[in-house]
Design a binder for these strands. Structure first.
Lengths: 304, 304
DNA sequence: GATCACCCCCAAGGTGGGCTTATGCTCGAA
DNA sequence: TTCGAGCATAAGCCCACCTTGGGGGTGATC
């Protein structure tokens, strides 16, 4: 087995013409060069150098090795350079998956800053809801998944909390849920309302996880919500509420891109928060481009 | 510094998909693979593998390394193969230099056997007299030099004996010198003649070294030969002797290709022998193709 | 749902190789 | 002839690698 280190030494000996000069060029002592060449000749089984006292010449086998050495060492340095480019953020690809209201608000700024800071990196974004996005992450189809989670409601199934225990969970910000009522609702003018006050209302729920959490919160408040509609399209929620078909709770973050029409928003008690997090795999968290993107996401969402 | 061994392991991990399978393929234990990959990741400074519990995937940097690995490892195996071909006598070049009467007699058979036994080798031959041929050898312009030497005459300069003390000297055969007389010479019918009987003759000498030795031998026999002609062309020697211009001594080997015409050959006393040897450099003597050629020369000249 | 098999990581021990320093030898130049 | 340069060798130290043994986790199977 020829080692690349041996080829490097052999090439230095061939170009400089002596062991001592090669040692100086390689930054080691002359016996080190001497021993390496002896080891290389032993591993190849044939002499590579001719020591004539006057000068150091190559045998035919030595010439063959030197001829191959340039290509091999060039390949090695090219590989090192490419890896170093990825490690040094001069290259690298980050595929991000985000849930809809996150991609429209949190992500763009972070991506723009990432591109500006590290022009060589390629950041892509697709949208997917949390269960699917985590699946993409685990399957290797993305590097970062933006997801959200609700605080655990006492008495509910604790399985959800362990859902991401093998992932790196990086909290980005907490998003408060607010109530959405029709404009003419009896509580539309209230400063804040208790969620139990909406026990008799018809409810419009969001995605399955949001819906599940809504039920848990309502049940801990003493009632089971009557859910007539379920959609994770926020403009549709506003439309349904505005049409008087029910009430809803909605992440405050959604309001940054969707304007209520025919409905009013009211803070609800108890304060329900969802936490928006970035998820990645432990190994990926150490990939420079991924780490940098996570940092950009964190700073982009840091609001004092 | 990326090492070829690491690339080999990484490629095995990438193709097999697990450390254990790679270890089986490489013939080592699984912790060895694990440690090698850790070392490689540490030397590159970035994760290369994603351990998801289920399967082992490559990061982008890992993919880049594997992509380069094939070329690098192919280059290494190609280099090993070429060197192995030279070491295994499936390739290799031997440039031989011989003095004229050697090349016409000793060499052809040895070269033919060499070609037959190792068809991949390339044997070439050029002619040069000993001082020049040794120079070619020392300058790296040939691998084997055929030369001859005379036994040291007591009282003469011992420098000649040390001329080749840094070379590998492989004796091939000893060549007896015989006297050449004109057909009508008074001693032409003798069974053998003492060299002192030719003290008053006119002499025809050969190459400078032959001439020098002739003088030494004659002087130890009590006379100084009168040398009127000097040529190392044996047919010319026969011509000169046949024309009655003098007497000569000549290697018996020369008679194999040159037929005397107008002259007779007579053994002389004391028996003067020259030793024909193959010379090479110590390092070259260990080159397989050179060693094989030397063996062929030795067996070709072994006469029971 | 429990067990089994597989796979990976970690720690410890032993062995081997590589580098360095120091020394001797040879060769070529002044 | 002396001096400097260069290579080889030996001894010693240190690091790196490999192996063995044990533990934790996961997925499949009964």
């Amino acid at each position: 087995m020829i080692e690349a280190r041996h080829l490097r030494v052999l090439r230095a000996v061939a170009t400089t013409g002596s062991f001592s000069a090669a040692a100086r060029e390689l930054g080691c002592t002359q016996p080190a060069v001497s021993q390496q060449m002896k080891a290389l000749e032993q591993s190849t089984g044939t002499p590579l150098l001719i020591r004539t006292g006057r000068e150091m010449r190559l045998t035919q086998a030595g010439e063959a090795l030197v001829r191959h050495a340039s290509g091999i060492l060039a390949g090695l340095t090219a590989a090192e350079e490419e890896v170093a480019a990825i490690a040094g953020l001069r290259a690298g690809r980050v595929r991000m998956v985000s849930f809809p209201s996150g991609s429209s608000t949190l992500v763009p700024g972070a991506l723009a800053r990432m591109r500006a800071a590290h022009p060589g990196t390629q950041i892509s974004l697709v949208e997917a809801e949390p269960p699917r996005s985590v699946e993409l992450l685990r399957d290797g189809d993305c590097e970062i998944a933006l997801a959200f989670r609700y605080p655990e409601v006492p008495g509910s199934d604790p399985a959800a909390a362990a859902e991401w225990d093998d992932l790196v969970v990086r909290p980005l910000l907490t998003d408060r849920l607010i109530g959405v009522l029709p404009e003419g609702h009896r509580l539309a003018g209230a400063e804040r309302i208790g969620i139990a006050e909406l026990a008799e209302e018809s409810w419009i729920a969001g995605c399955p996880r949001c819906r599940r959490h809504l039920v848990e919160v309502c049940e801990s408040a003493g009632f089971t919500p009557r859910i007539d509609f379920a959609t994770d399209d926020y403009p549709a929620v506003f439309g349904l509420v505005g049409a008087g078909l029910g009430v809803a709770v909605m992440p405050e973050l959604a309001l940054e891109t969707v304007r209520p029409k025919g409905s009013v928003i009211v803070p609800v008690e108890p304060v329900v928060q969802r936490e928006i997090v970035a998820l990645t795999l432990p190994d990926l968290a150490r990939v420079p481009a991924v780490a940098a993107t996570l940092s950009e996401l964190a700073t982009a969402t840091a609001r004092p």
